[in-house]
Amino acid sequence: MLKEWPLVAFTIAGQMAVGVFCFLLFPLLLLLSPGTSWSETARHTVLIVWGGTFGFIAIAAALSLFHLHHPFRAHHTLANLRSSWLSREIFFELAFMALVALAFVLVWTGHTRGLFLRAVMSASALAGIMFLVSMSKLYMLKSLPPWNSAYTGISFFMSAATLGAMATAWVTGSPPGNPGSYFSALWTAALFFVASDILFAVLLTPQYGAAGFRPGPSLRPPPRALRRLYFGRLALLAGGLILAVLGMVQAVPGSAGGFGSTPMAAAGQAGPIMTIAFVLVLLGEIAGRFLFYGLVPRPGD
């Protein structure tokens, strides 16, 4: 199970990148009319988050090479788009990465008014979502009943939503001093997704969830010793959720609270409570992904 760390890192980083894009950049663009000119601060913030998105997806692409035993043959992976979801996953990942980079360059060079940017961003969002869809379909194999359920797709999309919203909120700080603003809604969205993630995990996790699939005998070795990982994941997510709620309750407009000192909050930086909350949720997602791969041991390993 621990041998699958490159896949854990690849899927988590890839999902976080799509989540950040879909939860900050794309909706932000939709909120703006094509003729709106961006303030320098807004452009700066967007560029930082955008750079982070590109960084996550580039890291994901690099980490994916570590699970190949012949990485120098990796350029052949697009050879079977006709029937392999793995080929399609790589195709959409590369498309997402290229489109995000193009859109970044457009904003960086000040081309923020044209419809072309909106078209590029829409195509990026579509490629990102298709990346998640192909990543889910890739594991939903008939030969692997523990993965061949809607929960695989649900958990991947929930990870993207949770990590995307939390990472964006953490990076931007999103102090709730300005109710109604887009940024201040991010932590609320993040808390909703973390709570949903916990609920889905309790109900649907294969083998352990209340209504989760219980695999029967097959020619594949049964999973071992995953119970601690399952409960550890739930504890980490719940810890992150509680801390984030505490941080939000403390953070009244104009005060320090969980978002750090007032100047920091004004500058858009999360404080230590929110940072710990984000780290706990991230660790919870990582534990959940190790659990996911642990459900299907490879024979002979």
Partner: peptide, 20 residues
């Protein structure tokens, strides 16, 4: 000579015929 060692086929085969 063409295999990249991604081991995805190991998961796809329900008979666990493919071995690293």
């Amino acid at each position: 000579g063409a295999c990249i060692g991604c081991r995805y086929c190991e998961w796809a085969c329900p008979y666990t015929a493919l071995r690293f």
